[in-house]
Structure formats: structure tokens, C-alpha cells
């Protein structure tokens, strides 16, 4: 098993958001987590990635046989966790290429590898840019600065392609995307799918799941996963909304 979340409780400023989440993910799988606003979807993603504004009060997260909650953010990333941000952060003055080279080389150092030669790095960037149809000039620009909503999300998937994580958690990657950008972003995610990695897609809408077809769909409500099923569950939610589940359905 790649990821095992057991009875996870987490709070922010004393307010409990996650109230006992259980989830299991295997390699090769795509899981979708759906649910209304404010039920803890983004909190779950942030806690797995290691955001320290959340306090984990109970439970455990085991990733690849490692206790994830003991690790600082960067170590989780180096072990293969990737968080696609709902709101990617603008970092003026740091170019995407410098940012990614630092990241790749810090990861390589952690694994006892030499820094990647510049030519190899550039070739890799060129290859991965095509995946999400990023034009070449974008990578010389500062990270996310002045990017459109679509460019920011494409940039998230581009980073994912460059860093080759084992588990990707995509937090509302579809928000703020028009249909063309959505198609490109989803296409990028699909081409990175393999038997060795896994993806968790967090979304409000069934729309994204037409492009990234999940193996499992979970409904997160008030800090707990209250229902799990196959991809047909997403269609059911689209049709019926969440109310029928809230009442214990």
C-alpha cells in the first residue's frame, strides 16, 4: 500500500477540521475526493503535504512505509509527495527554471545523487513543457507572477512532471480553468499516470472527472469520509447533490 491514512484528526487555531479521516491509496490508482465547501478537502491535502499551520491531534499517515507526520515539508516532497496548489503562490524574482533546478538538485542530494547537469536539466524542461503546452518564454519568468489562472495551473502540472512524484495531490486544479485549459491540464495529468504512482484529485465538480477518470470517489463531509465508491458515485453526486448523504444516506 502506498498511502494509508488512519483516523486523522487535524485542527487550525483550536478548531477541529478533520475529524477522523481514513483513506487507503495503492500505486496505479486515481482517487477523487469530493465534497461541499469547507468540509476539509484542502486541509487534508495540506496536512499530507506538511503545512505547519495545521495541528495533527490524532491519527497517522503512512506513506511508502514511512511515518509522514514526523517529516518536515521538504522531506515529504523528496520522498515523493507533490501538492498541486489550489492557489499557487506568486514569487517575484525567482525564475521557474532556477526554482525547479534548486528543487531537483535538493531532491537529488537527499537521494545521494550528484546535481543534474545543466544540459540534461534544460532538455528535461523542454520535454515536459510540451506536455502541458507551456511556451518556452514562461519558464524564464518569475514563478506564477502575473500568470493567468490557466497558466498557474499548467505550471503546477509542469512542476509535477519535472519532479516525478510518487503521490500527487491536486487541490482544486480545475478551479478557474476554461475548458481548453482544463483539457490541457487533465491531459498532462493523464500522461503522467503509471503503475508506479498514484493521484488524489480534489474537486467540487464532476466535470474534471470526465477528463481524469478516477478509480475511486470519496465524499468528505464535516471532516470525515462518509461515502466511497467507484467513478459512478461522482455522477450520482452531480445529479443528486450532497444533501442525500448528509442525512446518513
Amino acid at each position: 500500500m502506498l498511502l494509508q491514512i488512519k483516523n486523522l484528526h487535524a485542527s487550525i487555531q483550536g478548531k477541529e477540521i478533520l475529524k477522523g479521516v481514513n483513506l487507503e491509496v495503492n500505486r496505479g490508482e486515481v482517487h477523487a475526493i469530493m465534497g461541499p465547501n469547507g468540509t476539509g478537502k484542502s486541509t487534508l491535502a495540506s496536512v499530507i503535504a506538511g503545512r505547519d499551520i495545521y495541528e495533527v491531534t490524532a491519527g497517522e499517515v503512512v506513506f511508502n512505509s514511512l511515518n509522514l507526520l514526523d517529516m518536515p515539508v521538504e522531506q515529504r516532497a523528496r520522498e515523493g509527495i507533490f501538492l498541486g496548489f489550489q492557489y499557487p503562490v506568486e514569487i517575484p524574482g525567482v525564475s521557474i527554471s532556477n526554482f525547479l533546478r534548486t528543487a531537483l538538485n535538493d531532491i537529488r542530494k537527499y537521494k545521494g545523487l550528484e546535481p543534474m547537469p545543466a544540459t540534461e536539466f534544460l532538455a528535461k524542461m523542454e520535454e515536459k513543457k510540451k506536455l502541458v503546452e507551456i511556451h518556452s518564454k514562461l519558464t524564464n519568468r518569475s514563478v506564477n507572477e502575473g500568470f493567468s489562472g490557466g497558466e498557474k495551473k499548467k505550471n503546477e502540472i509542469f512542476q509535477m512532471a519535472m519532479l516525478e512524484p510518487i503521490l500527487s495531490i491536486l487541490d482544486e486544479t480545475d478551479s478557474g480553468l476554461d475548458i481548453d485549459a482544463l483539457r490541457i491540464v487533465a491531459g498532462g495529468v493523464n500522461s503522467l499516470r503509471s503503475e508506479k504512482n498514484a493521484t488524489i484529485v480534489i474537486t467540487h465538480y464532476q466535470r474534471l472527472l470526465e477528463y481524469i477518470v478516477p478509480d475511486f470517489v470519496h465524499v468528505l463531509y464535516e471532516g470525515r469520509i462518509i461515502k466511497s465508491g467507484g467513478k459512478e458515485l461522482a455522477l450520482e453526486l452531480e445529479e443528486k447533490g450532497y444533501d442525500w448523504l448528509k442525512n446518513g444516506g
Binding site: 506538511g50 515539508v73 526554482f99 537527499y110
Partner: peptide, 19 residues
Amino acid sequence: YLRSRGISEDNARLLLMYA
């Protein structure tokens, strides 16, 4: 954001100060 990409805390600070 920087650390979530595997960048060490020191390097993340350097990148931001440099920026």
C-alpha cells in the same frame, strides 16, 4: 510553496532573499 517542492529551508530562504 518552495519547501513543498523539496527545497531545503535554507535554500528557500536564500531564494526569497535573493528575489
